[in-house]
Every structure is written in C-alpha cells, then in structure tokens.
Design a binder for these strands. Structure first.
Lengths: 125, 125
DNA sequence: TCATAGCTGCGACATTTGTCGCATTTTTTG
DNA sequence: CAAAAAATGCGACAAATGTCGCAGCTATGA
C-alpha cells in the first residue's frame, strides 16, 4: 500500500520535522496543494486510519508523526517505478538518489540495502 | 493526467503491438492482473473516454490503439517520480533507462529530449 | 467576562477507480 | 440450421480519493 501524492507530501514534511500539528502541516502544504484546512485535516485523519501516521496528543492539541519510515517507503516507491514503469530487472542505481535532498549519506546506505532486499522480493521493513 | 497502473500495462502492450482486440489484451493482462474479461473491457472503455486509447473498428470487432505516445508518457512518469518522490532538480540520467526493455536506442534519444523539455517546464508532446 | 479565533470530531458529497454482471447481438462450430 | 461461444453496450456497486462544511469546544485577546 503506497501513499498517494498528497500523503507523500505530508510524510516528507514529517520526516523532516516531527511531530507537527495539523495547522503547521497545512501551512507548509500551501506551497504544493491549494487545499482548505478541512481538506488537510481529513487527509491526516485518513492517514491515521490507514496506519501511515499516528496521533500525538500535545496538551489538548493534535500533532502527527509518521508511522512509516522514510527509507523503506522511498525504496518501495523506487522499486515500483523501476519495475512497473521501466520494467527493469535490477533496482535503480544508488547514484540516482545521491542528488536527492531528502536523503542523507546514512539514508543512502540504508536505501541500498532496502533496494537489494526488494530485488530479492523481500518486504522492506 | 497520468495513466493508472492497469492503464499503463495496457498501454505498454499496445506500444509493442497495435491495434489489439480486447480479448487479446485481456489474455496478456492475465499475467499481471487477475481480472475478468468484463473488468478489462470496462477499463478499455474508460481509457477511450479519457483519450488514452482510440477505438479501431476491424470488421465488426473492436480493436484498440494507443492515442498517447510511449516516450512522452514515460518521460512524464519519470519526471513526476524524480520531482515528486525524490525532489530532484535535474531529470533522471539517461543511463537509468538504458536497461529498460521498453525502450529502443531511438526511444532513448527521443526520451533525452523529452526529459530536457520537462526540466524546463515545457509540456511534452 | 465576553467576543473572536482556532481546533476538533465527524459528516457530506462528487469523482475516480476497482471490479464484475447481464441482456443482446454476432460469430463460430457441429 | 441451430446451438454454443464470443463480443458488445451498458449498468451496477463498493472503495478510495478529493474536497469542504458545520456544530461544539477550547484558547486567546480586548
């Protein structure tokens, strides 16, 4: 089960800084999605229901944290793109990810292992 | 507007051999989708409605041909993956596509141009 | 203290996608 | 020629996604 485009935007924001409130996430999403506050919160609610996020109560205010990790999620998306779109037999080369601002050097190492696991058909952790 | 996963499978079959009847496409899809014949035909109908396919009357039998070209479609999917998932600023390197069985040497050349256009924000043709 | 602003829980509706069925027509086969 | 098989047009329903509203509660500010 892969995140949709808006869900991925939210996850990327949380992987950078978590937890965050609905309002904080909504304000940052304004750059990419022309949504109302209600739309953002409904999506957050659905992501909690789907197991992508968890609710973190801070006082009487809701905050959200990612339940899925960055590297396995990105690895799964990359593997899906490689096999479904390009019909490649091997995972994408690591060099492709090197310029991504989302990934640190540690992330790249972990990603390499994830992609190898996916190539063998293992489920990522 | 991008093709969904099943729609892309159908397009890939047609890019290899077109036009094809619904039955021919359905038989080949059995490898990747566990669908009934009704499901396949409904999807084909929707793809015609969406402008992805055109109906080709062969005698009294329906055949389908792709209305969207392989290279611009794959370029758009690649560009979307690069920017939305990896947040890369440059298009994916051409080397990544070299191992794809979908793409001939000519396709790779055309793809290079497409990706450069997409990088500049142009719409692919 | 009260009005205003912000947050919450939940509902609502439209569209898209997933998936298959049925009646009818046409083609094929015996 | 008739029965069986295949194809067609269209309908149907569920789930997912897109998108926003409202009533009520809490926090803030004047």
């Amino acid at each position: 089960m892969q995140p949709t485009a808006p869900e991925l935007e939210i996850l990327k924001l949380l992987w950078q800084q978590q937890p965050q409130t609905g309002r904080e996430l909504h304000d940052q999403l304004a750059d990419v999605l022309d949504w109302s506050y209600s739309s953002t919160r409904k999506t957050l609610e659905r992501m909690v229901d789907k197991g992508l996020l968890q609710l973190v109560q801070q006082g009487n205010q809701n905050s959200y944290a990612a339940l899925v990790a960055k590297v396995p999620t990105l690895a799964a998306l990359a593997q899906d793109f490689a096999s479904r779109v390009l019909e490649l037999k091997q995972p994408l080369p690591l060099a492709m990810f090197a310029d991504s601002a989302l990934l640190s050097a540690e992330d790249l190492q972990a990603l390499e292992q994830q992609l190898q696991q996916l190539e063998r058909g293992d489920e990522p952790c």
